[in-house]
Structures are given as structure tokens and as C-alpha cells.
Design a protein around this nucleic acid. Structure first.
Lengths: 247, 247
DNA sequence: CAGTGGTCTAGACCACGAA
DNA sequence: TCGTGGTCTAGACCACTGT
């Protein structure tokens, strides 16, 4: 009942998916060229490419311009844990992890003023972080902290960045409350080139706002992860009485 | 620097996006037919359609087969609030809200056994819920509760379903802990037809597992929302001392 | 029925990667 | 240079919606 209108695209995608999941095509292996596949399936190149786009969105196939289509190696999933940041304790000891951080001072405007609840033009410390695990991009973060709250010695400086930055964890002074908003959307062109995830695959975007006891926003972070590799995990513990579900 | 390779598709998408955001094309308005647009932009229909697919993924355009392309009316965003479910308190009094619920008893297998930590074949109460707001689909939920914990009178019965079900809130006995895993992915074909979101737009998927004080899983819920309408919000309050960020 | 979007084709041309 | 994927075209045919 699901496929009343069989489409060439989905048929081909289903067949290739089957070959991948059953191991007829092994991780890392190169698929035949699109021209070959097209003639093998008696389909046009356009149709075949749209079938590959389906698999690409599912994270099963990686396309590399000029080289070919490859069965993606099953990568360790990235786990974003609420207050902690990415890199949960189990994978924190990852060796082949590279994080590049660029710090700058910017002036608040647009979304940032509303997120941080500061007037336009307020000085902010910006941490622009990209993390890679081996070849594959891990995630992308833009973390903003009011400059007077930024950890000393990290701005306009070449001192090594703290662990927290590498994990995309909360910076600035210890917050009293964190509010995280998660959404799913297609990547911007910047993001799709940085994350090497072509626009077929969605991204998981986390907007994190941390406030201190007085209600002042001490950090706002815009985090982006490739949707086919990342999950965000939130755990809530309810003490009795505090339950708020209505009847 | 971003667009060193100008592509016809993006140029067209950018132009149409501009016309929409500046109000030259108004919400609800029908766009010219794809044939018209194609000739107007001096592009092929395929190229033009791929441009529309970009806008569709961004939630700016809605395609209706046989009728045309329409500028989407800005819809109230759906907010999924951690323990509470969808329909935050502010919008809970929504009038034009319809929810269809189908209940059944199923036997656990596959993912469900691991999620609920029950042996294969265990009887589960299944709540299959679809919620609409006016015309547009709101969300989709599959909630599973061990049958001996299911609220009485809701199974195989025509009694009105409780408010909690309509909100996709936690069912079953009050949980002591809730663990929610959020991910972004393309919709399955079932989901894209149910949510009327064509596969260009990603979905926000929430897997919610609720456990009681003894650690027993009292509910597992698979929630799916259209990515261009939904956000998931999580709020954490830190009492001093409990902060776990490493240095 | 006419008009719309949905799918597909065969082939052209461009951009990238490895010789 | 060659083989790869990336983009685009012009046109055919099908499926859905309204009259």
C-alpha cells in the first residue's frame, strides 16, 4: 500500500540500499560510475542520480566529486548531551579528533541581540569551532559570550583553548539554567560545504542559551551537526510532586 | 566567496525567496505555473523544479499536485516541550485542532524490545496519533506502553482519549525519569505522505523513553514532526554544586 | 476536458581529481 | 589527459484537480 506508484528512483534506491545493508556492497567500497549504474538499471543519469540522492540523505552513500560514489563507513554517532556538549564521556578519549577554533570579538546584532538580550553593538566574544574526526566533519559551533564574561586569556590570544570549547560545552561562568532548542532543517550552503554533507541530508541544529541566577544570558551557542551522524540526548529526572503532566 | 559557481537553481531560488520575503509574493498566493516560471527564467522545467525544491525544503513554498505552487502561510510553529508534549501552554487552547488516535495491542519486536526492555512478544498498547491544525498536519506519534500499565478503558474501546494522548504527552504511570533523543532525518515515505511534507523537507524525530523509580520502562514514544514547523525545547535548571562541566 | 505538477529520458557541457 | 560527478536542457509521458 505504501508504493502504489512505483517510481524508478525508489526502486533503484531500494535495490542499492539492499545491496549495501546485506553487505554485497561493503563499507568504503566504490560504487560503479553513475554512467555504468544508469545503463545497468536502464535509467537515465538524472534518475539514477536522484536515487543516489535518497541514499545520500540517509547517510548510506558519500559522493566525492571527481572520484565516485562510496558506501559510507558506519561512523560513530555523535552524541550531544544536554549540558555537557558533544563528545560524551564514552567517546571523549577519541584520538583522531581535531578541533579548530577561531576566536574574535564581534558586535551584537540581529538574532544575537535577542538571544543574548543585549543592545545592538554590544561586544561579544565569538568562538567559531569546527571539529573533525579523522576525515569526516563532526560539527560546527558558533558560541557567543558577552565579552566581559569571557574566560580570560582566550581572546585574541594563542593560548590553547579549554576542553570545554572543544566539546562545544557551555562557556562562561556556571549557568543556573540552560534552554536548548532543537530543530531539523536543510543546511545552508556554508554549512553543507563545511560539514561536507551535501544538501540532501538535513542537519540537527541546537540553539543553546545559558543564563545565570539573575537571569542574565551568559552564553548563546548555535550548534550544527550532520543529521545522519548526530543525536541530541536530554535526560530529565522527576522527583515526586514535581510532575506537571495534566490530566 | 560562497557562490563561486553560480548555479541556475540557486539563482532562481534566491530570486523567488526574495520575492516572497519582501512580500511581492504574498502568503497563500499561487505562483505562476512551473512552465511559465521556467520560460520566464529561461530555464528548463527540471531546473526550475529543483529551485522550487530548495524553497520547499525551507518551508517557504507548498506544492499541491494538480493545483500549483503556493507561498506558504506562516504557520504557528509547533513547540515540543520536554515532558509536557507538543502544544505548549500558550497554544494549548487551539480551536482548529484535530487529533486522530488509533489504539491497538501489538507484540513487541525489534526496536521496541530494546527500547522498552521487554522480551519479544510482550503485549504492548499502541497509540497511533496524528494531529492536524486546520489543514496542515501537525505531528505524528507512536506511543507504546506495556499493556498492564496502560490506562484503563482506553484500549479496544471507544471512550474519548485523554488530553495527554492528544498532546503526545507521557502516558502510563508517572515516570521518574525521561530520556529524549532527538534527531534530524529525511522522512520515510509513510511519514512524508502522512505529514504532507514532501521528501525535500527533513523531519524532527524524538524518541522518548520514560522509566519509573525502579528503572522499568513505562513508555516509549516515537514522535515525528515536520522540520520546517517544529522545534523541541528543553530546559535544565542547575542548582549550584551540580554542575558537571569539566575544566 | 484542460491545466497543473511528477517523473523520466538522452544527451550536452562544465568542474573536479588523479595521473 | 581522462574518468568521475555536477548541472542543465528540451521534450515526452503520466497523475492529479478542477470544470
Amino acid at each position: 500500500m505504501t508504493r502504489s506508484v512505483p517510481s524508478r528512483r525508489h526502486d533503484i534506491a531500494d535495490d542499492l540500499r539492499h545491496q549495501i545493508t546485506t553487505g554485497h556492497l561493503k563499507p568504503g567500497e566504490r560504487l560503479p560510475s553513475e554512467t555504468d549504474l544508469a545503463s545497468r538499471y536502464k535509467a537515465s543519469t538524472v534518475t539514477l542520480r536522484s536515487a543516489l540522492a535518497v541514499l545520500q540523505g540517509e547517510g548510506l552513500v558519500e559522493k566525492i566529486h571527481g572520484k565516485g560514489n562510496f558506501v559510507r563507513r558506519p561512523l560513530r554517532r555523535i552524541m550531544y548531551v544536554s549540558g555537557w556538549g558533544t563528545l560524551d564521556p564514552w567517546t571523549a578519549a577519541e584520538p583522531a579528533l581535531r578541533v579548530t577554533v577561531r576566536t574574535a570579538t564581534v558586535q551584537a546584532d540581529g538574532h544575537l541581540t535577542t538571544l543574548l538580550r543585549v543592545p545592538t553593538g554590544s561586544p561579544l566574544a565569538e568562538f567559531f569551532c569546527v571539529s573533525h574526526e579523522g576525515e569526516s566533519p563532526h560539527g560546527l559551533a558558533r558560541i557567543y559570550v558577552p565579552r566581559d564574561l569571557a574566560p580570560a586569556g582566550v581572546l585574541d590570544d594563542e593560548s590553547p583553548c579549554p576542553e570545554a570549547v572543544k566539546r562545544f560545552a557551555v562557556l562562561g561562568p556556571p549557568p543556573a539554567a540552560i534552554r536548548e532548542t532543537v530543530s531539523a532543517r536543510p543546511p545552508t550552503s556554508d554549512e553543507s560545504s563545511t560539514l561536507r554533507t551535501n544538501s540532501a541530508a538535513p542537519v540537527l541544529a541546537v540553539t543553546r542559551v545559558a543564563t545565570d541566577r539573575t537571569g542574565r544570558v551568559v552564553e548563546a551557542a548555535l550548534l550544527v551537526f550532520p543529521g545522519d551522524r548526530a543525536d541530541a540526548v536530554f535526560t530529565t529526572h522527576h522527583t515526586p510532586d514535581e510532575r506537571q503532566t495534566a490530566g
